[in-house]
């Protein structure tokens, strides 16, 4: 379980996170929703110790994130985290070099799944394919938790569908996933849990099936209520 406990963060005078708390379970897809600039990316960065928080605590399975955690949790930012001059094959080799959790079989499978050619240079890829390589490099790690920042933004519809398919496959199954988005429609049926953010706080944290069951509301219905209030 990933526990985010009352984290606060300021950028200059701007209070970006003002006491954010939520949890994300293993085996579930948790979706952080909020308009752009609401601090979603900052939360993911903070979980990965890529940016300091002013107060609060983040725990991964009850422990603080250390270097060993990176064999257990990975982060797929919205831009590719590999050197563009590398080919996909070289990028995979790099990952294999540093991560014990790298699973080349799964990487090869993902290459096929996304129809990518490993001899292609990353810099020569389309936006959609670059996003897929970025995803591949994260998903091929045998980690328990995966964080994804806006995996659907700024790419073509077919790539979006392909990426959405990942969420219903064994590539994600059993793992804990946190994804951020400002646009829910692509993935409404995929997610287990929703965390609605605004102005640096969590407005509501709920289970999407429970809300449908007990209140007959869609995720969008709840968002409408919460954000209008």
């Amino acid at each position: 379980m990933i526990e985010v406990k009352d984290i606060k963060k300021k950028f200059g005078r701007k209070q970006v996170l003002n006491g954010v708390s939520f949890t994300a379970n293993k085996g579930e897809i948790t979706c952080l929703i909020g308009i752009n600039g609401v601090g979603k990316t900052t939360i993911l960065n903070a979980i990965m110790a890529l940016t300091p928080v002013n107060s609060g605590e983040i725990l991964l399975d009850g422990q603080k994130v250390t270097k060993q955690s990176f064999e257990k949790i990975t982060f797929i930012p919205d831009a590719i985290t590999m050197i563009p001059q590398m080919t996909i094959a070289e990028a995979m080799e790099f990952m294999d070099d540093y991560y014990d959790s790298w699973n080349q079989n799964r990487a090869t499978e993902l290459l096929g799944f996304f129809k990518l050619k490993q001899e292609d240079k990353i810099s020569s890829l389309s936006k959609g394919n670059t996003a897929k390589v970025n995803l591949l490099l994260g998903l091929a790690l045998d980690v328990d938790y995966i964080l994804m920042d806006e995996p659907f933004s700024g790419i073509d519809i077919f790539s979006r569908e392909q990426i959405a398919d990942v969420f219903t496959s064994h590539l994600i199954e059993g793992r804990g996933v946190i994804i951020t988005t400002h646009e829910i429609s692509d993935i409404e049926h995929l997610i287990d849990k929703v965390v609605l953010l605004d102005e640096g706080i969590v407005l509501k944290e709920f289970n999407s099936e429970e809300v449908r069951e007990s209140e007959g509301k869609s995720v969008v219905d709840v968002m409408r209520e919460v954000y209008k209030a």
């Binding site: 890529l50 060993q68 064999e71 990975t74 930012p77 590999m82 563009p84 540093y98 991560y99 959790s101």
Partner: peptide, 16 residues
């Protein structure tokens, strides 16, 4: 630059 390789470097399972 276009890539943000620092993410990768800081997320390597080794002391930074």
């Amino acid at each position: 630059g276009k890539n943000t390789f620092i993410y990768r470097l800081l997320m390597l399972p080794t002391a930074r």
